[in-house]
Design a protein around this nucleic acid. Sequence first.
DNA 1: CTCTTGATCTTCT
DNA 2: GAAGATCAAGAGC
Length: 198
Amino acid sequence: MAERNIPAPTGRLLTRKFFARSVHDVAPDLIGATLLVDGVGGIIVEVEAYHHTDPAAHSFNGPTPRNMVMFGPPGFLYVYRSYGIHWCMNFVCEKEGSASAVLIRALEPTHGIPAMRRRRGLHEERTLCSGPGKLCEAMAVSVKHNGLALDAPPLAIYARTRKPEIVIGPRIGITKAVELPWRYGLKDSKFLSKPFPA
DNA sequence: CTCTTGATCTTCT
DNA sequence: GAAGATCAAGAGC
């Protein structure tokens, strides 16, 4: 079966400068942007912010081989192994040494859906990218992508054209700093990893 | 629908 | 040795 043609996304391509701001400004601004890896991906509908002063962040206890990219300059990709099985992707923000990043938690699939279905072994679009491990599997992101620039192939991130309605809540799956409202989502999206509390 | 569990890498104790 | 920025499958309701 032939792969369907992939339309070019609209909107400006984000450059590294976009990420050289507070992680708490970048995170909500990413909701509605389109993330593609090798032309495959979708609209970012859910993210979380992490910072080195935050006990839940991987960078909280200083640099390790795993989190080294977080301590580098903004505008690069940090990929880590989660629970020994999955990969999760983050965009490094702020400035070198600030060790802050935005975890990409869910996408609304728009580009290369047949490829993502194949990789996930799943047909249903709603759950194709509805979690940080799921979207990496769908886009074939792994440690090979750790440290790549966010504004150069195979990555492309397109700015949204309109500001969407954004919902905020506590982060998912952590046990430290659980009260901090640093999870951001696209209001009423069907593609979230979990609904936001009312 | 909800709840429980296994998978098994990286870091910390 | 234990915990963790997760996910899917199976049991039970």
